[in-house]
Design a protein around this nucleic acid. Structure first.
Lengths: 254, 254
DNA sequence: TAGTGTATATGTAAGGAATACATAAAGCTT
DNA sequence: AAGCTTTATGTATTCCTTACATATACACTA
């Protein structure tokens, strides 16, 4: 089986070039159709889905490795990427089960230790800018509704849950949500995003007031046409003002 | 040199029993004399100070390892302990310099990789309950004022800085500060603690109002006598109410 | 072109929280 | 008894949060 050979090669390479016993897992959030999405990969010749992840080169910073892995496995570059938790439970998942599901080659000869500690990163990306592309380990790469994830490989369901919790907390602290929208967006779009992440409805009048009061978005003259209704104004996120407000610490949203 | 032998033994043991390339560093905060303190260890036969740290057994959860290390190296048990960041820069510190400073034996024969990734935990402890005790690697264990730390080994100054930043943010989210005080405390003591952590003065009338409004402390009839002034009332933290308020999410402090 | 359906844009009043600010009281010392 | 020190406490103002309803613009259809 060709793929199995490839896997063997890959593991051999990893054992030589990478830090042993450590991995990185990335939870990539996107927003589309009023749904918060997560990018998942389907492993070759299986129906098994998991998070994009990978390993750290011996002389590579972990942050840089996270960026690289993301790019290698999904083609996504330059985004909001943040470490959120390190998963170090002694038994994170059933190793045998995983080995079986993914038809991994016999790993008894590997130097890899019994237990892998994984550093979790989450990314926020503009859905429209991503072309999900599978890599050499996987057959398929696509967005999944975060509320309707399948049962994932490893402890990836747990990792997604922790990432989501972190995202919710962060959203109240600083408007990280902007990273999930295209450059220009309407107020209702922004509101849907917040509603989706926080998982509760918000009042449009109050929401608009609060968002504009933060002083980090600007309304453009432009409007978005196309719907059978009043055209909404477009807004743009102002990064300079954001940085300034961030330093002054007045960006809380409740 | 006896100590050097001991070190060699220790490293050998670590290589066998522990996860390679990973370590844990603990930033232990205490509060005394209106100062935020950090517990540091002085390495044997040196004037070099560093954070208590250690390694993870191969089949041990990282959280459990952090607790164990804390207890082994400082005698502290049962406390507020939380993972806050994983430090994975490719060059965290000058290894040669450290080796020299600590007179470490030649490590070229070790299996240990070139780079160590460290998982940072911070702990909040009741100052009065801790008896700093040095362990077999160190000559001295004592509290240092967080504002007046010496230059520490490894990247420990950086780790403390990140821990402190995390503590400040957390304090606005949930009243973690209580872990730093003895069971019974006065309102002014609590205020000093907050002032110290947040590094700014607070108004006593507003502070008292806000704290009592959170509904998670109760005033006792008891008062603390002893000063040449009006006796302050004692308060007690109510853990049940705290848990309840935590779930309902109304514990923000700004 | 008039009518219909749909999502958008917007203001005001009320309640609650945060801030600013100053003085009287209690305990110990001398 | 006077003096020093630290604690305890209330009110007015401002700001933020919440609750709540209607007119408007656009597209589509008849």
């Amino acid at each position: 089986m060709n793929y199995k050979k490839q896997l063997e090669e890959y593991f051999k390479e990893v054992d030589i070039r990478c830090v042993l016993g450590l991995s990185i897992d990335c939870v990539i959030f996107g927003f589309y159709d009023n749904q918060l999405k997560v990018l998942l990969l389907r492993w070759k010749q299986t129906e098994e889905w998991g998070l994009p992840g990978g390993f750290i080169y011996k002389n590579e910073s972990v942050d840089v490795a996270a960026q690289r892995i993301l790019e290698e496995r999904t083609g996504i570059k330059e985004l909001f990427l943040q470490q959120f938790h390190t998963f170090g439970e002694d038994v994170r998942y059933n190793r045998q089960e995983i080995s079986q599901k993914l038809s991994w080659p016999d790993t008894s000869s590997r130097q890899w230790p019994d237990r892998t500690v994984s550093i979790g990163y989450f990314a926020l990306v503009d859905f429209s800018k991503v072309t999900p592309t599978a890599d050499f380990l996987t057959d398929e790469c696509r967005w999944w509704d975060v509320e309707k994830l399948p049962s994932l490989l490893f402890d990836h369901n747990h990792i997604v849950a922790v990432a989501l919790r972190t995202l919710r907390v962060q959203l109240s602290w600083q408007p990280v949500g902007y990273n999930l929208l295209p450059e220009k967006f309407t107020m209702p779009e922004l509101q849907r995003l917040y509603e989706t992440i926080l998982n509760r409805p918000l009042d449009p009048r109050n929401f608009s007031k609060k968002m504009r009061a933060l002083g980090i978005i600007e309304r453009l003259e432009e409007q978005r046409k196309g719907g059978a209704f009043k055209s909404p104004y477009l807004f743009r996120f102002n990064k300079e003002k954001y940085e300034k407000a961030l330093q002054e610490g007045n960006l809380a949203f409740s």
